[in-house]
Structures are given as C-alpha cells and as structure tokens.
Amino acid sequence: MKIKQISIFLENKIGRLAEVTKLLADSKINIRTLSLAETAEFGVLRLIVSDPDACLKVLKDNQFVAQETDVIAVEVQDKPGGLNRILEIFHKNDINIEYMYAFVEKKVDNAIVVFRIDNAGKAIAVLQDHNIAIVSDDIIKNL
C-alpha cells in the first residue's frame, strides 16, 4: 500500500526546476503532485508521478542525484476536521510525520494527502484499523 515518491537534489539556480519538468515532459511522465523543500542553498523536489521507475531512470541518466522513497497516500474527507482526524490517529499511536503535502488533482471525492513516515508499515496498519482508505500505486497511475 506504499507508493513511490521520487526526490531530486536541486541547487537554487534559475531555470533548474524547469529543466526537470522539461525532462519529464519529453519522457511523457505525468506529475501527479509535488512539493519543494528548500534551504538557502539547495532544494529537494519531491514528486509523485505516473511512472516512478521510468522517472528515476531518466533523471539518473541526466546526472541528477535522485532516489525513490516509500510514502503513504491517504484519502482525507474534504470537509472541516478531515485532516485533523487522520493526524489525531497518528498522534495517539505515536507515529511521527517527517513531512506531508496534498494532491492537486481531484478526480475522487476525497482529498489525497501524502505522508512521509519512518515507520510506514505501522502507520498503514493503524490507518487500516480505522478504516481509512489508502491510495494504491494503481490508483495513482490511473488518476
């Protein structure tokens, strides 16, 4: 139930992000959602894409430092308290979130939020106990 996120090391230089999106566009890889974490000197671009393996290959072939990481994508009810419910479950079960970001797409009724959690296995079990829908690779591919 984990999905693959691609992260990429980027220096803070004009046009560098556009180089990545151009590369993915040329390779017919669709970006489902993204988040950019930054410091004064560099950024880490995190992507959820239609084909993570192909994405990683094309990045490495073009001398980017990139890696695949497992993350969890969770359906969150699109109403007040929707996200809070999930976060409380994590909190009560002592699950620490490293970072999170939301999907920009909306072909499903619920919002989708991506969580990066060190102990992903435990998080999945806890979410399942609470009947919270976890988004699979297949769904991401066909969004």
Binding site: Q5, S7, F9, A37, T39, F42, V44, R46, V65, A66, Q67, T69, E98, Y99, R116
Partner: peptide, 15 residues
C-alpha cells in the same frame, strides 16, 4: 558534489 549516499528526501539528513 552530491552523491547517492549523501542525498536524502529529508533536508535534516542532508544537513
């Protein structure tokens, strides 16, 4: 130059 082993998806690890 950044290498595979020095890189991480988390900023705190890179720092």
């Amino acid at each position: 130059e950044m290498t595979e082993t020095l890189f991480s998806d988390e900023i705190k690890n890179i720092n």
